[in-house]
Simulated assay, not measured.
Amino acid sequence: MVRMGSDSPILDAAACVGCGECVTVCPSGVLSLGDGLVVVAGAGCIGCGQCRAVCPQCALTIPGDDPWAQAYDVIEPSGEQIAPGGCQAGRLVDIMRSRRSCRRYLERPVPGPVIEDVIRAGITAPSGTNSQAWTFTVLATRAAVMSLGQAVAGFFGRVNRLAANRLVRKGYALLGRRELEDYYREHYASVAEALAAWERDRTDRLFHGATAVVVVGSRPGASCPAEDALLATGNMLLAAHCLGLGSCLIGYAVEAMRHDKRVKAAAGLPREETVHAVLALGWPAVAYARPAGRRRPLVRYKTA
């Protein structure tokens, strides 16, 4: 076995045939050919696994690869490596169009193995420089979800009291900060109504009765943590749908956690982590007959 540095691939020299395929796909330039074998040349490997994936002899392994990511509990992958063009794009589009944001859930809890498989599907997403610094904090019971809901309600109650003060709003606007004025115009009334319903009888207009929540965050040090987390979240939405779950992204909870450390603490996140998405999960109490429509986007082409 040949290894250079803690993050570099490990080469089984006896298995290597010197084809050089791994050298051509390495984005970090840490592999080269010498004397008919692959040479692992110094540090700089990002652990992307491209070399291992392309090697016809399985002569390379990546330190740090964890079997947890491959050991699904309820999903049954075939293990097949599907080449580009090797699956029906129409079926994939059917799945993507059929997934909708769910706002009616059964009281049935979501088992932990199901949630973990959703997360496993999430981390098949690409990650900038292969940082994989994403984190997933699971609120696995309705009681835990309601506790976070109470913290979010407390935050927006404080924001609404501030926004209700016209002098404060105008003062912020004069300083070039129109966020509070915009919030008052666009969200104040609906938030006040939701808060009143919450205080009256715990009507849940935030998580809509979901019995589980996954907070998708990141540890410090990633090159593009927000993009990584949101790509993983997109995969999770599709996996949840395929497993029979309903899902909904809860932007109000993200904003509360970004602006108030007490809300983030209520979700169980340490201070150094950043929140990028909050995903409500549960068994849907509604069935949809057709996919959602979409507006035509602006699409540009540049040919030179």
Score class of each variant (00 low, 15 high):
residue 153 A to R: 01
residue 205 R to I: 14
residue 124 T to M: 02
residue 278 V to G: 01
residue 55 C to F: 02
residue 138 V to G: 00
residue 23 V to H: 03
residue 161 R to E: 15
residue 168 V to C: 08
residue 124 T to V: 02
residue 222 A to Q: 06
residue 276 H to W: 13
residue 36 G to Q: 11
residue 61 T to K: 06
residue 222 A to W: 03
residue 272 E to N: 09
residue 59 A to T: 01
residue 247 S to A: 13
residue 219 R to E: 07
residue 22 C to Q: 01
residue 287 A to C: 09
residue 221 G to E: 14
residue 112 G to R: 15
residue 53 A to M: 09
residue 214 V to G: 02
residue 230 L to F: 05
residue 175 L to E: 12
residue 48 C to H: 03
residue 260 D to Q: 04
residue 83 A to E: 15
residue 252 Y to I: 14
residue 260 D to I: 06
residue 23 V to F: 12
residue 265 A to K: 13
residue 48 C to N: 08
residue 243 L to D: 01
residue 45 C to L: 10
residue 278 V to M: 04
residue 241 H to K: 07
residue 293 G to F: 12
residue 38 V to W: 12
residue 202 R to V: 12
residue 178 R to Y: 13
residue 107 E to P: 13
residue 23 V to M: 11
residue 130 N to D: 01
residue 210 A to I: 04
residue 40 V to P: 00
residue 275 V to T: 02
residue 136 F to W: 05
residue 8 S to F: 09
residue 97 R to L: 06
residue 207 F to H: 01
residue 268 G to R: 00
residue 69 A to I: 09
residue 65 D to W: 11
residue 274 T to K: 07
residue 254 V to K: 04
residue 129 T to W: 07
residue 287 A to R: 10
residue 218 S to T: 03
residue 230 L to W: 01
residue 269 L to H: 07
residue 55 C to Q: 07
residue 276 H to R: 12
residue 73 D to K: 13
residue 62 I to K: 08
residue 298 L to Q: 12
residue 92 L to F: 10
residue 2 V to H: 09
residue 113 P to H: 02
residue 275 V to H: 04
residue 256 A to M: 05
residue 62 I to T: 01
residue 175 L to C: 11
residue 217 G to Y: 02
residue 107 E to W: 15
residue 199 E to T: 02
residue 256 A to D: 07
residue 297 P to N: 11
residue 165 N to M: 06
residue 165 N to V: 07
residue 262 R to C: 01
residue 265 A to W: 07
residue 231 L to A: 13
residue 180 L to T: 03
residue 254 V to R: 02
residue 118 V to A: 08
residue 236 M to C: 06
residue 61 T to H: 04
residue 295 R to I: 12
residue 24 T to H: 14
residue 64 G to C: 14
residue 93 V to M: 10
